[in-house]
Amino acid sequence: MKERGKAIRTAALHLFAEEGYEGASLSKIAGRVGIRKSSLYNHCSSKEDLFLSLVEEVYSRYIQELKKIVSGSTGTAEKKLYSTFIATTDFITREGTGRFYMHFLLFPPSELEEKVRTRFLSFEEETNQLLLPVLKKGIADREIRDSDPSILLHAFYCMIDGMSSQMFYYPALEAAQKREHAWGIFWRGIRHGKEQ
């Protein structure tokens, strides 16, 4: 039963990513798993319930990865921010998960837009709570120039968002080069020291 539930979630995630909320019917999800549509109701109450639970799952997976980077390391602010940048943009490129994330974030189903937006803002607050202390410590340690950490975090998010889009448009090698260039410019802009 547990394996069947996992197969349903995987199929639903891929179909939502490929065809959007409207295109991914419960019949198609069931067909991809090789079960009857009626059997899906043993695992979810509705398509909306399945979709929102996948939104929650994707956010939770990302937060767990971020916690490992930020909490599980004694590295510098530069190392933690760089690792976060790489992990986030890699997360976006994962088949299924990344496409689902980008699709529901940029184009949520109109009937679920408010719920998705509310959950995104809650998710962003969770990431703020993890990343702001990294920036504050970097400033206190004189690794990062004296700045408002919230403003630095806004710039960091914008870099991640921009690079996340680029990861879909360019071949892997070119995307990796762009990512390194973006990071280099960003870090030179916030690091402490006379040479900027």
Rank of each mutant, 00 (worst) to 15 (best):
E19K: 12
G98V: 01
F104D: 09
M159T: 11
P133W: 03
G138T: 04
P109V: 07
M163Y: 13
F186G: 06
K80C: 06
L66R: 11
V33T: 06
L13H: 07
H43A: 12
I151N: 08
I160T: 03
E78I: 00
H154Q: 09
G5E: 01
G193N: 05
A30K: 01
T97C: 11
A77R: 01
Y82N: 15
M159H: 12
D148N: 03
E143C: 06
S39V: 14
K115Q: 06
I160R: 02
H43W: 06
K68A: 07
G34F: 15
L153F: 06
D148W: 00
S46I: 01
T97W: 10
K115G: 07
R188N: 08
F156H: 05
T93S: 12
A7H: 11
T76C: 01
E143G: 06
E125M: 12
E143I: 05
T93P: 07
T84K: 15
W187F: 01
Y101T: 14
P171H: 06
G184L: 11
C44M: 15
E95S: 15
G162C: 05
G189F: 03
F186D: 00
G20S: 01
Q129T: 05
M1D: 08
R36W: 03
T76I: 00
S164T: 04
Q64A: 14
T118E: 14
V33G: 03
Q64F: 13
C44V: 13
I69H: 13
T118S: 13
G189A: 02
S27F: 15
L26F: 09
T89F: 08
H14K: 15
A87P: 01
G5R: 00
S53N: 09
K79T: 13
A176V: 03
